[in-house]
Design a protein around this nucleic acid. Structure first.
Length: 326
DNA sequence: GTCCCAA
DNA sequence: TTGGGACAACGCGAA
DNA sequence: TTCGCG
């Protein structure tokens, strides 16, 4: 696949030029020029933990997008990207976008969906494979990145089995951690490496990188089996009810995201909440850190965390495991 | 956020 | 010139 | 077959 092997970060000069733009203007980053608009528009109010911090503008979002790009792009390259867009930021309406408008900049990499069932037309998807593309996404307020779990050369074969711990209204953070630790024990027992991350909202996910020989039906069944076993250990914390109302505030262990076209929020993606929290990869040990929170890292500090710790989700790109028979 | 089309 | 609509759609289980 | 759900 003709994508660059490494992703060069935005230069200091490019970042300075972003700061010097007025409320809109043409910006050159990573070798491509594009028009940026409404740079001083507030997209995120400060979080309640830091109410005196300045709010987060679109300019700051774009700055984050290009600074995290070298770490994020390996997770997005070669994958169709579903965009969830929040043109008015937190609290405003959002919408999904799969089809890239023909009027979008010509230099964006596109992939026309193949192998689609007869009843719908194939979409022309965006593939994020450049620093400049991340700036484009920031300008579009498309900051909640949802890459497909397959790669575009074999779009109907997943590269991940996905564990999604979705807390109910009555689930505490400590209970969410209990569930995550049970998955940790289960995967350890099976000799399978999973990549855990916070969601930036309330949950925790584990992405398990796999060889491309499984169907979605198989990955879904595999994750369901483990999840049922986890749930059986702490039945008071988990509900298997489909209807939200019948769940009584309990957590859902949602294996049904292991399906074609469905997506989970990407590592380092920004969530539409005050303070711009991100979905942050963690080490398994951090489940025992009393300071861990599901929204602990934001666009203001996750780049520094990556500088210190590296990409804790690197295994999601480099590993390809068999799923042991259960 | 941006395009498109109707008014 | 302005304003409103469009911008996704799988698969599971219950009704 | 449709509806709720993520």
């Amino acid at each position: 696949m003709a994508t660059p092997p490494t992703f060069t970060p935005a230069t200091e000069d490019e970042l300075a030029a972003l700061d010097e733009l007025g409320k809109e203007g043409t910006w050159s980053v990573g070798g491509f020029e594009q028009k940026l608009t409404n740079l001083d528009k507030v997209l995120f109010p400060p979080s309640s933990d830091h109410p005196d911090d300045p709010p987060i503008t679109k300019r700051e979002l774009i700055r984050y997008c290009v600074r995290i790009a070298p770490t994020l792009l390996p997770h997005l390259r070669d994958r169709a990207l579903n965009m969830q867009r929040f043109p008015d930021g937190v609290g405003g309406p959002s919408f999904w976008q799969k089809q890239l408008p023909p009027t979008a900049p010509a230099w964006l990499t596109r992939w026309r969906e193949t192998g689609v069932e007869d009843h719908r037309a194939p979409n022309m998807h965006l593939v994020a494979d450049r620093v400049a593309t991340l700036a484009f996404l920031g300008n579009q307020a498309a900051f909640e990145f949802h890459p497909w779990t397959s790669r575009i050369d074999r779009p109907w074969e997943p590269t991940f089995a996905l564990i999604d711990i979705d807390p109910g209204e009555r689930t505490t953070w400590e209970e969410t951690l209990v569930l995550a630790r049970l998955y940790r024990t289960a995967l350890d027992h099976l000799g399978v490496i999973g990549c855990p991350k916070t969601t930036g909202k309330r949950g925790i996910q584990v992405w398990i990188p796999i060889v491309r020989s499984y169907t979605y039906q198989e990955t879904s069944a595999w994750v369901e089996q483990i999840s049922r076993a986890v749930g059986a250990i702490v039945p008071d914390l988990v509900s298997w009810e489909w209807s939200k109302a019948d769940r009584k505030g309990k957590a859902r262990l949602d294996y049904t995201q292991n399906a074609s076209i469905k997506t989970l929020v990407a590592p380092y993606a920004v969530r539409p909440s005050a303070g711009a929290p991100v979905s942050a990869p963690i080490s398994w040990d951090e489940l025992d850190d009393p300071d861990l929170r599901p929204d602990r890292w934001t666009i203001r500090d996750v780049v520094d965390r990556v500088a210190e710790r590296g990409d804790l989700f690197a295994g999601a790109v480099s590993l390809a495991q068999e799923l042991p028979t259960l």
